[in-house]
């Protein structure tokens, strides 16, 4: 709605444009130097032999063709990490979306103490990832963790379980923490969209005899569809690159059961010290992200153009 007025005030001839270029120059230079150049350097790196363990071999820092890519795609650990990434993303996204939606719907009602509930439910988002990971590592601990203590006390377990040291449970425990931490971010965006809906629509729907279930599917969801999709895709990018939680809780283990592409690329780069294959793996992740972000752009632009 303010578009019309901003267009009107930005009349060409009346204003000199050079201060505008001067204003954007520092940021443009920073983005070029800190995002665009490293991106191309990274693309080049994925086609280069760059194993830091053997810097004196003649092939070091020479063109490698596709060999970094063939190397990772013949690595069972990488293939496993792709599968884990898909599982990780699906589980996280589904759980975060459902809980965030329910929470946003509840916090949009006229509850007593609503602002208290709102602030408090945002706490997991405010907590740094690494702190959350350390906290839950403590809670899941086999000897001193409250989860084992309570489970044993209540008779759910006969003896304490090493939740993070077990290939059956480690993935799910880490996913639980990521979900716990991810719900508020998704919720804020949904809540912002919900608050833009006028209550009159619901009142007239009530008069027409629509129940809450029908109101949600017929009125609420269609209206918030676009912001919901955008928030979901933004959240998805956070989920796919959720390094801290995984690395601090399990380091991708045990037996790579919680390894995703991101942690695989980190391991190749800074533990195995082969920056070439690490870059190749991060490129695979990047291509997936770009496919996702194309969808994001479509939705964000809608029919209004990028300049909106």
């Amino acid at each position: 709605m303010t578009r019309a007025s901003s267009r009107k005030t930005a009349q060409p001839g009346r204003r000199r444009n050079w201060p505008g270029y001067l204003m954007i120059a520092p940021a443009v230079i920073a983005v070029l130097a800190l995002n665009i150049y490293p991106l191309f350097r990274g693309i080049a790196l994925s086609f280069t032999h760059y194993n830091l363990v053997r810097p004196n071999t003649p092939i070091f820092n020479t063109f490698a063709g596709l060999s970094n890519y063939t190397k990772i795609f013949s690595d069972a650990k990488f293939l496993q990490s792709i599968g884990n990434t898909v599982k990780w993303t699906a589980v996280n996204l589904a759980a975060q979306l459902v809980f965030a939606m329910l929470l946003a719907l509840v916090l949009n009602k006229r509850l007593r103490g609503r602002s208290f509930f709102r602030t408090m439910s945002l706490v997991p988002w405010a907590v740094p990832h690494s702190i959350a990971a350390m906290t839950f590592t403590f809670l899941f601990n086999a000897n001193v963790g409250i989860i084992n203590i309570l489970a044993v006390k209540l008779g759910l377990l006969s003896e304490p379980v090493s939740w993070l040291g077990n290939t059956q449970s480690a993935f799910w425990c880490v996913a639980f923490v990521a979900i716990w931490k991810g719900i508020p971010f998704q919720m804020i965006f949904i809540l912002a969209a919900l608050q833009a809906i006028s209550s009159e629509i619901y009142e007239s729907a009530e008069v027409d005899g629509a129940n809450q279930w029908q109101q949600f599917w017929r009125i609420t969801l269609p209206i918030i569809k676009e912001p919901l999709a955008i928030a979901t895709i933004l959240n998805l990018i956070g989920i796919v690159s959720c390094f801290n939680t995984i690395w601090l809780m399990t380091e991708g283990g045990p037996l790579y059961s919680s390894e995703i592409i991101y942690t695989y690329a980190y391991r190749q780069g800074f533990i195995v010290h082969d920056l070439g294959t690490a870059s190749a793996a991060s490129m695979v992740l990047f291509v997936i992200m770009m496919l996702i972000s194309t969808v994001y752009l479509r939705l964000a632009r809608g029919d209004r153009g990028v300049s909106a």
Binding site: I36, L39, G42, L45, L275, S293, L297
Partner: peptide, 20 residues
């Protein structure tokens, strides 16, 4: 461009940054 850079996973830039 600014919007696209929001899609960069951190590790993508971390590796070339190490060399730079």
């Amino acid at each position: 461009t600014v919007l696209m850079t929001r899609m960069f996973p951190g590790i993508l830039l971390c590796l070339p940054f190490y060399i730079i």
